[in-house]
Amino acid sequence: MMTVGIKIMPRDVILDSQGRAIEESMKNNGFKFEGLRAGKFLEVSFSNENKEDVKTEIEKMLKIGGLYNPLIEKFEIIF
């Protein structure tokens, strides 16, 4: 069994309202950092452990299956 991570973040030009609110609240409470953006992380498990096959399937899930919204999001596959 292989578990692969998919990180889905808002595209850089898109306003990240969640990240903004968390960032402002944290900074208000005195924590020190530059910026914060919020997205989501998916963990998908496959019985087939062939990296290429899995990558192809994930890309299908993303682009055809609607796992992300290309208008406002970008993704990264993390093995």
Binding site: V13, I14, L15, S17, R20, P70, L71, I72
Partner: peptide, 8 residues
Amino acid sequence: KPNVQIGD
């Protein structure tokens, strides 16, 4: 792919 306006 316009730069979709996001409302908060």
